[in-house]
Design a protein around this nucleic acid. Structure first.
Length: 418
DNA sequence: TTAACGCGGCCGTCGATGAG
DNA sequence: CTCATCGACGGCCGCGTTAA
């Protein structure tokens, strides 16, 4: 064999592909001190509490986020402010809205959690200004809070995603802790999470902001994206070794969240302002909007929307739920004929409540006791089948038998009279 | 005339669910 | 010991109708 007797042990190992010696290993990194300004092109802002880091970006008003422009194309409808219970939402111009989102040291509430980054966006002139405030060190918190207060000062309306239960209370706690005035104290607060739930609860399996982006706004996040649950750890790592490099992904995550808030408000405003229009592509969305009108006592509009939605394609379960709501709505509106029509449709489908409603109708309104009894008997048949849910059966049996007894009496006495 | 009944509005409760 | 909000649901109450 050719193996040379002169080769050192290290050489032999090397030729076998084994790495030997300290110099072959990646150097254990000493603190790199990559500062934040070499990661994102931000600058520093002076406050009464010292300086704070802020990264400001400006977008033109026609900037598209996914499919949707940032600037609302239509005025926000009264329906939206009625739902959010604050007139300012449909009255004030878009410049009065501030879209905000925090990145925090964790999800747990209480005083232990703080925001190390706050992103805020607002319209000014022909631009959308996005400002991202960042704590190079937790001691800069008062300075950041003051800079944030200054940024949102021209506004009167907060727009957030779950900010009512998370971001706003958290920031409030931090302002109080530093004995600073709370800058959004008497602002209106439009929390788009709850609107998204109402609009897409049945169409999407998840209503996280990311899911809304993907399925409603057609926004794709790039490889820069970091998952939300990693964010606190990334920040703790930064605090330990002062390498800001991983913060780039956090800035990106926060930026997309803010842009999505603006785009989502625009989209929601558009479909609520014109629910019959082309912007509404899914019958499930029409039904959801109908429900919104119904809850806000706009019954005529709600009825038209239910009918419009029921014309389209719907999963059977959602179709029947909408039929139930529409039939009860029509009864409330006094359109008994329409109500009876939809109860008939639901009764065909074996829904007990529809049989009960029809029995009520024929007993009390048209006095047709024979027909009423028919519906009660049919319903009793269905309830008595063995695959009928046990707890429901008991409830309906009581109700139906009660009706049946009364109808028997009424039948007798009306026969006597004849 | 009255007692019983059915209806519908209202309110409290419960379980889910997003936020990092 | 998060918390705002929603839909579904059940109980309660006041009103109008009707059988006796």
């Amino acid at each position: 064999m050719n193996s040379s007797p002169k080769k050192s042990l290290a050489d032999k190992l090397k030729s076998l592909g084994v790495k030997v010696g300290a110099t072959e290993h990646p150097r254990p990194k000493p603190a790199e001190h990559t500062p934040i300004e070499s990661v994102v092109p931000g600058d520093y802002r002076q406050t009464h509490y010292g300086e704070t880091f802020v990264y400001e970006q400006r977008y033109p008003l026609n900037h598209l986020h996914g499919d949707i422009p940032l600037l609302p194309t239509t005025p926000l409808p009264d329906l939206l402010s009625a739902w959010a219970k604050d007139e300012r939402i449909s009255r004030l111009p878009i410049e009065k809205f501030v879209f905000f989102d925090t990145e925090t040291s964790g999800l747990a509430g209480g005083t232990g959690t703080y925001a190390f980054m706050v992103g805020a966006g607002r319209f000014e002139g022909d631009e959308f200004i996005l400002a991202q405030f960042f704590l190079r060190d937790p001691s800069e918190e008062p300075a950041m809070l003051e800079a944030l207060a200054e940024f949102i000062a021209p506004c009167e309306i907060l727009v957030s995603y779950n900010g009512k239960s998370f971001d706003a209370p958290l920031l409030q706690t931090r302002y109080r802790l530093h004995e600073m005035p709370i800058p959004f104290q008497d602002y209106a607060h439009l929390d788009l999470l709850h609107l998204a739930r109402r609009l897409w609860r049945d169409r999407l399996t998840s209503r996280t902001l990311q899911s809304i982006e993907e399925h409603i706004l057609s926004v794709g996040r790039t490889s820069e994206e970091v998952p939300g649950y990693e964010i606190p750890y990334l920040y703790f790592d930064y605090l330990r070794d002062k390498n800001a490099e991983p913060m780039k992904g956090v800035f990106y995550h926060n930026e997309i969240d803010i842009l999505s808030l603006a785009a989502l408000l625009n989209h929601a405003g558009t479909i609520l302002a014109d629910p019959f229009g082309e912007g509404v592509n899914h019958s499930l969305d029409v039904i959801a909007i109908a429900k919104l009108f119904e809850d806000l006592h706009q019954w005529d509009e709600a009825a038209h929307l239910y009918e419009h939605g029921l014309e389209g394609k719907l999963p059977q379960e959602d179709f029947m739920r909408a039929v139930k709501r529409l039939s009860i709505l029509q009864r409330r509106r006094g359109d008994i004929e329409e109500a009876v029509k939809w109860w008939g449709r639901a009764a065909e489908d074996g829904h007990i409540y529809a049989h009960v409603e029809l029995a009520k109708h024929y007993e009390h309104r048209t006095k047709d006791f024979v027909v009423a009894k028919e519906y009660v008997l049919t319903a009793l048949e269905m309830v008595k089948t063995e695959d009928f849910p046990f707890h429901e059966r008991e409830h309906w049996l009581g109700e139906l038998n009660h009706r049946l007894e009364r109808l028997k009496r009424k039948n007798k006495s009306s026969k006597k009279r004849n």
